[in-house]
Write a protein that binds this DNA or RNA. Structure first.
Ligand SMILES: [Mn+2]
Ligand SMILES: [Mn+2]
Ligand SMILES: [Zn+2]
Ligand SMILES: [Zn+2]
Lengths: 136, 136
DNA sequence: AATAACTTTGCAACTTGGTTGCATAAACTT
DNA sequence: AAGTTTATGCAACCAAGTTGCAAAGTTATT
C-alpha cells in the first residue's frame, strides 16, 4: 500500500494508476506544475484525463490552482490538512528567469484596507522577480 | 482640437479616428474594459485593430493592463503622469456580482517580506468580492 | 502635384489553453 | 454474472490572443 494511496483515499478519491502517477509528479516537484507540463512529462497520457485528474484533485483539496498571470494555470499540493480557506492563502512567486512558480507557504498575504463598501471574499497575490535559485 | 487629441499626442501617438473612439470609451467608464468589451461596443470595428490600439496605448503608458484572473485581460486609464513604475501599482478589485474590475487607485499594494534570496520586480494583487455598488 | 516612405487598418488564418460530449473500459455492487 | 457507477480516451469545440500580409491612409520629399 503506497504512500500516495493513502493521500488519495484520505481525500476521498480512488487511487487509480493515473492519479498515482500525477500525484507522484506533484510530490517530486518543489514548484507548481501546469497541465501542459504534465502532458510533456507523460506523453502517453491523454490531455483530458490529466485535466480531469487535476480537477478532481482540486475539488478534493489535495491541490490548489494558481493563476500566476502567465496564461496557464499552475497546480501545487496543499498542506496536509488544508481546507483551502482564506486564511490558508499564501503569496505565490513567479521567477522571470527560470519561469517557475513557487508557493511561498510561509508568506501569508498581507491584509489590505479597501474603499468603503467593498467586501473581500478572496485574494490573489503574485510576486514576480528572481527566485533564490536564479540569484547569482 | 479635442481633449482626447491632447492625451494621445502627449503620449506620442497620432490621434486617429479609431484611437479617439477607444479612448473615449475608456474615459467614460469607471471600470476596466476588455478587448471583447470593446468588440461588443464597436461592432463595426475590427478585433485586431482594437487589439493593436490597446497595445499601442499600453506601450505608450496611456493605459495599463490588468490580469484579474477571469481569463480576459482588462485595461484601464493610467493616472495623468503615470509611468507605470512599481510604486504606481495599486490593488485591483473584481466584483463577483457585477463582474466588473476596478482600479483601486487609492489602495497601494502592501509590502511583503519574501524568503531569503527572492527578489521582487513587480506585484499583482487582485481582491475578489462584492463592490460598493453591488452591496445591498 | 506627383512620388516615395511610413503608419494604420482590415481580413484571414493560426496558436494555445481550456473544455464538452460521448463511447468504451474498468471498477464496484448486488 | 449482471447491473450500476466511475474513470479514461478520442474527437471536436471554444475563447482569447496573436501573426502575416495586403490595402488604405498619412506624412515627407522632390
Ligand atoms: Mn500555493
Ligand atoms: Mn489599475
Ligand atoms: Zn528562478
Ligand atoms: Zn459589483
Amino acid at each position: 500500500m503506497k504512500d500516495t494511496d493513502d493521500k488519495l483515499i484520505n481525500r476521498n478519491m480512488k487511487p487509480t494508476a493515473m492519479r498515482e502517477l500525477v500525484l507522484d509528479a506533484l510530490l517530486e516537484q518543489n514548484v507548481a506544475v501546469s497541465l501542459s507540463d504534465l502532458e510533456k512529462k507523460f506523453d502517453k497520457a491523454d490531455k483530458v484525463t490529466l485535466y480531469r485528474t487535476l480537477k478532481t484533485f482540486e475539488e478534493n483539496k489535495l491541490i490548489h490552482s494558481i493563476d500566476d498571470g502567465t496564461g496557464s494555470v499552475k497546480y501545487a499540493l496543499c498542506a496536509e490538512n488544508c481546507q483551502c480557506n482564506p486564511h490558508d492563502l499564501h503569496v505565490h512567486f513567479f521567477c522571470t528567469e527560470c519561469k517557475h512558480t513557487y508557493c511561498l507557504n510561509d508568506t501569508p498575504i498581507p491584509s489590505v484596507t479597501l474603499p468603503l463598501g467593498f467586501e473581500i471574499k478572496t485574494i490573489n497575490m503574485v510576486v514576480k522577480g528572481t527566485c533564490a535559485n536564479c540569484k547569482k
